[in-house]
Amino acid sequence: MRAIGGLWRWRHNPLRRGTDLAEAWLALAAVVLILAVAPLVGAAVGAAAQGALQESVRDQRAARHLVAATVVRKLSRSPLDPDPETASGRGTHSRVMANWTAPDGTVRQGAVTAGIKSPAAGDHFTIWTDQRGRTVPRPLDGATATTHAVLAGFGATVLAVGLVEGARRLIVWRMVLRRYARWDRAWDRAGPDWGRTGAGS
């Protein structure tokens, strides 16, 4: 709104300089870009991220399998969990030695994190594995993928707004520097006679 008001105010003003009008047009162009182009950029980035993440969700669901495991014994220490989504429930997880059957039919044994607070030998729980029975993190779910896509789109919109505003400020700064340089040259031309007695000033 200030850009439009600036254009209207300077339209027929006799004191208007070319740079004043250029600054007003530049501000108007920046407002249009911020209101029209930046949201389109965010929507495009968000849609691209959504497509890629949903494809990743489908790939992970196809490649990862939920299998039943049986506790052999509880292990003494529980290292840091690599899955950040299970970090909030770490108090209900225990590190155990367990047996499980891979989707390809092979029997596996290894140290895994069980969603059991006090595991005992023979307790059953589920883990995620690949086709060969190696433990993997649980697959990405669609809601989480959508959240990441929305955040990517929002971030792209904010970045586009920042770039437009940064470019506008840089151009205005260069225009102001040129204006000051012109004033300095004009002052240098008038300076030798400024304030001198009998110089007509």
Rank of each mutant, 00 (worst) to 15 (best):
Thr146Trp: 09
Thr146Pro: 08
Arg178Gly: 05
Gly153Tyr: 09
Val107Ala: 15
Val71Phe: 03
Pro119Ser: 02
Ala181Tyr: 05
Thr144Leu: 12
Ala149Tyr: 12
Gly142His: 06
Thr135Glu: 15
Pro79Ser: 01
Thr135Leu: 03
Thr92Lys: 10
Arg77Leu: 11
Ala181Trp: 13
Ile127Ala: 02
Gly155Glu: 01
Leu170Ser: 11
Leu80Gln: 11
Trp100Asn: 03
Ile171Arg: 12
Val107Tyr: 09
Arg174Val: 02
Ala156Asn: 08
Gly110His: 00
Arg134His: 14
Val112Asn: 04
His93Arg: 15
Ile171Cys: 13
Arg178Tyr: 03
Ala87Thr: 05
Thr101Leu: 09
Ile127Pro: 15
Asp141Thr: 02
Tyr180Asn: 04
Arg179Phe: 05
Val136Asn: 00
Arg77Thr: 09
Val72Arg: 13
Arg174Thr: 01
Arg179Val: 06
Ala160Ile: 06
Val176Lys: 12
His148Cys: 01
Ser78Val: 10
Arg73Phe: 00
Asp141Val: 11
Thr147Ala: 08
Thr147Val: 04
Thr144Ser: 08
Ala87Pro: 02
Glu165Phe: 15
Thr92Trp: 06
Ala149Ile: 06
Val72Asn: 07
Arg108Ser: 12
Thr70Ile: 04
Thr70Leu: 08
Thr113Met: 15
His148Pro: 05
Arg174Asn: 10
Ile127Thr: 04
Ala98Thr: 12
Thr86Met: 12
Tyr180Arg: 12
Leu159Asn: 05
Pro103Asn: 02
Leu177Gly: 07
Asn99Lys: 15
Val136Leu: 07
Thr147Arg: 13
Leu177Gln: 13
Ala152Arg: 03
Trp128Gln: 03
Gln109Phe: 01
Met97Pro: 13
Val161Cys: 11
Trp187Val: 03
His93Asp: 03
Arg90Asp: 08
Pro119Gln: 01
Val112Ile: 14
Val158Arg: 06
Thr70Cys: 06
Val112Ser: 00
Gly133Lys: 00
Ser78Phe: 13
His124Gln: 12
Pro79Val: 02
Gly89Trp: 11
Ala149Asp: 04
Val172Thr: 12
Val71Met: 05
Pro137Val: 02
Met175Cys: 07
Arg174Ala: 08
Gly105Glu: 10
Leu159Glu: 01
Ser94Val: 00
Arg182Ile: 03
